[in-house]
Nucleic acid binder design. Structure first.
Lengths: 211, 211
DNA sequence: GTCTATACCGTGATAGAC
DNA sequence: GTCTATCACGGTATAGAC
């Protein structure tokens, strides 16, 4: 049951309702993004995911088979949303605006709690025998999008990747939380994102996801 | 005792020898960099750190007080080495070469097993009540170095940070392991590091640190 | 300075009812 | 489709000897 210690991660729509397996899976995946994003793979518990989704812990395991499988499914979900958003950003965009559009899409995805952080966590698990390969495939898929669908040259693609990693890092660090209170963090953040910052501050939920 | 399951992480110089507290601390920190770098904070166990350092698990806890404290000390160690290497790279460097020099220093540090990965893991723990603030301080310190000691403007500093995060990501993903065998990874890696790659391949230990 | 033994607890997974 | 009960394991930390 969903109750108690982490109310801010609770995303259950209608806790008691009986729903289709697919609906539940989707709901659990959204919860998993938030939990894995905050705690990382090993730090997250299937119980916390379950509570965030408003179901019981054994049911989460039942639906996905194992914690490892749940994480794999969560990565897939994150990548699917990412690439879909990117693709949508490229329609009706000329070579002039396409970069800004896709960058914007990346920042907009910050509103999906834990999406970037979950991917960032996966990217750090390269030496895991099953998660590692999946993470590499996912990363390669994003790169392929930059190269093939966006038609970027190697240099621009690298810049895109690098910029994305920097944004992810600053989000994972939760620099946002100290923005405005700690003068140095404020300056660091400002100087790194002279243009995007207002939008980031607008779209990122601050002070939530607390440990 | 150091034995068995993860021989490649064993860095004990002389397992049986009795040494000063400070020597042991240092030895354990080097082991901790490798273990935390591979497994992350929650995935790592104090026992694996102990075995890698050639001491008993309770002794690691005894010396550092707790796993959390050990991790904080490990981050400090990583940052100290990073900033020291950066500083050394800036002496006798003019405005023309300083960028290349510091970048080179960053890549060279890949030879310290787990250093970049440990920092990357810390950077993802922004919402942890005690590790989060420490990680933010560390990140800010690096940024301060770019700004004050290297005298970079905001734009160049951001580029440096971003490039660093990209390198960290690719290392954490262990793209190196598939380099040469997987054609797509090979191309991705090549196109991202047209110049540095030979050096990276030279300095990064491949196929070790396996799960 | 360093070990062995061990207490204790959190977590993933299974069994089985409804 | 979903829960409750429960088990087995692994991991941190403590006690205390050498």
């Amino acid at each position: 049951m969903s109750s108690g210690s982490t109310p801010d991660l609770d995303i259950a729509v209608d806790p008691g309702r009986r729903m289709s397996s697919d609906e539940r899976r989707q709901q659990i995946l959204v919860a998993a993004l938030a939990v894995f994003g905050t705690r990382g793979y090993d730090g997250a518990t299937t119980d916390e995911v379950a509570r965030a989704a408003g179901v019981s812990q054994p049911y989460v395991v039942r639906l996905f088979g194992s914690k490892e499988n749940l994480f794999l499914a969560t990565i897939e979900e994150a990548l699917a949303r990412l690439l879909t958003a990117f693709r949508e950003a490229t329609v009706d965009a000329d070579a002039e605006t396409i970069g800004k559009r896709v960058g914007q899409a990346y920042v907009d995805l910050l509103s999906v709690r834990g999406l970037h952080q979950t991917l960032a966590n996966a990217y750090l698990m390269g030496s895991h025998p099953v998660i590692g390969p999946a993470a590499r495939r996912g990363f390669a898929a994003v790169w392929r999008f930059f190269r093939d669908d966006m038609g970027l040259d190697a240099d621009r693609a690298r810049e895109f990747l690098a910029e994305g990693m920097l944004i992810s890092t600053m989000i994972g660090l939760r620099l946002v939380d100290d923005y405005g209170s700690d003068p140095e963090i404020t300056e660091l953040f400002r100087s790194c994102f002279p243009t995007d910052l207002p939008h980031i501050l607008d779209v990122v939920p601050r002070g939530t996801d607390r440990w």
